[in-house]
């Protein structure tokens, strides 16, 4: 077997990416269609984007969704990072398998189960459903994704750096913020972004746990999609795709640059 690509490899990659991207591309193209019929091309137009500006319901929903996504992913990042530290650093502790079970299970748990169980909890403790219940629900399921991302960085982490700081009398709390955190930061940032997009994207859990006045964007899109394909929805989707694409690309360039810088510094430190 030769190293490098064969025609078979190239074809499978090309077909795979075509399969992944063509549907999204079609959706974006048809958001600029002048016709209301989504299947007939009638010339270029941006009218559906202007129509969105007058759709107050949609703008409200987008605002609610963004706030929930931002705050839930912030808390989830803190909790998830703590959970990852506990899982990688604490060795054996009482109830460890229960803890790791509760971290891994939500990753694959069908959303209908998570959503229903959280709703029944909120009802049982008489918690008014709305913004806050969705926020709590989103923190709960996204923190597990953060924990797994951060954990995978922590297992390859060189403990000697921390130990050196501790030996030199640096308090543990300070050691974490000056040594550990900067080194695992790329993983923490990608954990945050993962939590943010998962929250932004969630329909099922939010539908179960929400209440009056807290309709999220996926819930709005879903109720309109059920009525059929419309160019307005294509326009909303295109905007979301554009935002996510830009954020992901910028973030990956930034973390890559930070990584290169760090490596260069390490090399310089070793030489000097």
């Amino acid at each position: 077997m030769r190293k490098g690509l064969t025609w078979f490899n190239v074809t499978s990659i090309a077909l795979g990416f075509a399969f992944l991207y063509i549907p999204i591309l079609i959706l974006v193209i048809y958001s600029f269609n002048a016709s209301r019929l989504v299947t007939v091309w009638a010339g270029f137009s941006t009218q559906w984007y202007w129509a969105l500006l007058e759709n107050d319901q949609l703008i409200d929903a987008a605002w609610v969704t963004l706030r929930i996504a931002f705050f839930s992913s912030l808390v989830a990042t803190v909790l998830g990072t703590m959970a990852a530290l506990a899982l990688t650093r604490y060795g054996r502790f009482w109830g460890r398998s229960l803890f790791s079970g509760m971290i891994y299970a939500p990753l694959v748990m069908p959303e209908v189960i998570t959503g229903l169980s959280l709703l029944l909890l909120f009802v049982a403790v008489n918690f008014d459903r709305g913004f806050w219940t969705v926020l709590l629900a989103h923190i709960t399921f996204t923190m597990c994704f953060v924990a797994v991302v951060v954990q995978s960085r922590l297992v390859t982490f060189d403990r000697a750096l921390e130990e050196a700081a501790l030996d030199l009398g640096c308090p543990p709390f300070k050691t974490f913020f000056t040594i550990t955190l900067p080194l695992i930061l790329p993983a923490v940032v990608s954990g945050f972004m993962l939590a943010f997009t998962l929250s932004l994207d969630d329909l099922v859990i939010a539908s179960f746990t929400t209440g009056p006045g807290a309709t999220t964007l996926p819930m709005r899109i879903y109720s309109q999609v059920r009525l059929g394909v419309t160019p307005e929805i294509n326009a909303v989707c295109t905007i979301l795709i554009a935002i996510v694409t830009v954020v992901v690309i910028v973030a990956s360039i930034v973390t890559k640059r930070a990584e290169n810088l760090r490596q260069a510094e390490e090399r310089a430190a070793l030489q000097g």
Binding site: L20, I26, L203, V229
Partner: peptide, 26 residues
């Protein structure tokens, strides 16, 4: 990155995209 990117875009959007493709006049 190209494999992960579609995963970042909404699940609902990706399902929705197929409605337009698969429908009888799609």
């Amino acid at each position: 990155m190209l494999v992960i990117l579609p995963f970042w875009t909404s699940f609902l959007i990706r399902v929705y995209a197929w409605i337009g493709i698969l429908s009888p006049e799609g």
